Simulated assay, not measured.
Amino acid sequence: MNQPENRDEEPFLGSTPPREEVRTDLPNAARMYDYYLGGSTNFAADREAAEAGSAAVPHAREYAQANRAFLQRAVTFLAENGVDQFLDLGSGIPTVGNVHEVARQSNPRARVAYVDHEPVAVAHAQRLLGELSGVTMTLADIRSPEEVLSAPGVSGLLDFDRPVGLLAVAVLPFVPDQDEAREMLATYRGACAPGSHFVLSHISALSATPQQVAAAEEVMARTPTPVRWRPPHEIEELLAGFSVVDPGLVPLPRWRPEAPVTEDEVNIANAYGAVGRLDG
């Protein structure tokens, strides 16, 4: 890809503010996640569904918090290993400690392209980001990789001839078909240069019972974004084509923790995570 000159002088490259009607009467996964993280960009329907999810699986907030902490550790790891541009798939609503904030602690010139298909998340992010150089927010469905990769906020910002940090944190449960998820990721992987990294986290039963998993999936089936909890061997399949770095695919709190973690903290997170590297 040919990079534009004087990139720091460029205007914001995200998509234009979405014009479609925002349904605030239907719960939405991005806004529910925002609620679990203590955010304010959510509505009554989101809060009601989030509380129903907590009733089905008692540690939904801990799951969201474990994902956010894992994202921050993984982005720091990538940035410290020379990755200076990131594609955040299904980024959701920006909160404190988001990707560009974390990456720029290691490299102030790091570039981040956020992508989400939820209009409220995108509009809110665009207002927060404004004209911030080197950061974009694009309205697109990650299940259409060609659309994402060709979007101005992605193709105009990131140089795919150089290593990219591809992030899929807590988003692949919303692509419930295993074959579709694998094919989608293969397209993204094919667009990345050697040295790129893939950051993956996924909900999976650790402390949750089969009955709780079924109840949680039923809650999300009543929203526009049904989910699938995957067992570890199916999550591992989504890492195909990448060399998984130590410590491998592990429960989220056990991925390079900054402090000792308890078995209870591990189990209530109900999620696995890994980072893979694309070799030449």
Score class of each variant (00 low, 15 high):
Gln126Tyr: 10
Ala110Cys: 08
Gly156Tyr: 00
Gly165Tyr: 01
Ala205Gln: 10
His124Trp: 10
Leu132Phe: 14
His117Ala: 13
Val171Met: 07
His202Leu: 04
Val199Ala: 04
Gly156Trp: 03
Ser201Asp: 03
His117Ile: 13
Ala168His: 02
Gly165Asn: 04
His117Gln: 12
Thr136Gly: 08
Gly195Lys: 04
Pro194His: 07
Pro173Arg: 07
Ser201Leu: 00
Leu132Thr: 15
Asp161Tyr: 02
Leu200Lys: 03
Arg111Glu: 06
Val120Lys: 11
Asp179Gln: 15
Thr136Leu: 08
Gly165Thr: 01
Pro145Asn: 03
Ala125Pro: 06
Val120Gln: 11
His197Asp: 09
Gly190Ala: 14
Val169Asn: 12
Asp177Phe: 09
Asn107Lys: 12
Ser204Pro: 04
His124Asn: 14
Asn107Tyr: 07
Val175Asp: 03
Ala205Ile: 12
Ser106Met: 10
Leu166Tyr: 05
Pro119Val: 04
His202Asn: 09
Ala110Trp: 00
Gly165His: 01
Asp161Ser: 14
Pro119Gly: 05
Leu149Trp: 05
Cys192Leu: 14
Pro176His: 12
Ser150Arg: 12
Leu149Asp: 07
Pro173Thr: 11
Phe198Trp: 04
Pro194Ile: 04
Glu147Ile: 09
Ser155Gly: 06
Asp159Ser: 03
Val199Glu: 06
Gly195Trp: 02
Phe174Val: 11
Pro194Ala: 06
Val164Cys: 05
His124Cys: 06
Glu183Ser: 14
Leu200Glu: 00
Glu183Met: 11
Arg162Ala: 15
Gly190Trp: 03
Met137Gln: 15
Pro194Met: 04
Ala113Trp: 04
Ser201Ile: 01
Phe198Glu: 00
His117Met: 14
Ala121Tyr: 05
His202Pro: 01
Pro152Glu: 08
Glu147Ser: 12
Pro145Ile: 02
Val148Ala: 01
Leu172Ser: 12
Gln178Pro: 09
Glu183Asp: 14
Gln126Gly: 13
Ala110Arg: 02
Arg182His: 10
Ala170His: 10
Ala193Lys: 07
Gly190Tyr: 08
Pro194Phe: 05
Ser196Trp: 01
Asn107His: 14
Pro119Ala: 01
Ser196Phe: 01
Ala205Cys: 13
Ala113Lys: 02
Glu131Asn: 15
Asp141Trp: 11
Gly134Pro: 06
Pro152Trp: 05
Val148Phe: 00
His202Lys: 02
Asn107Ser: 15
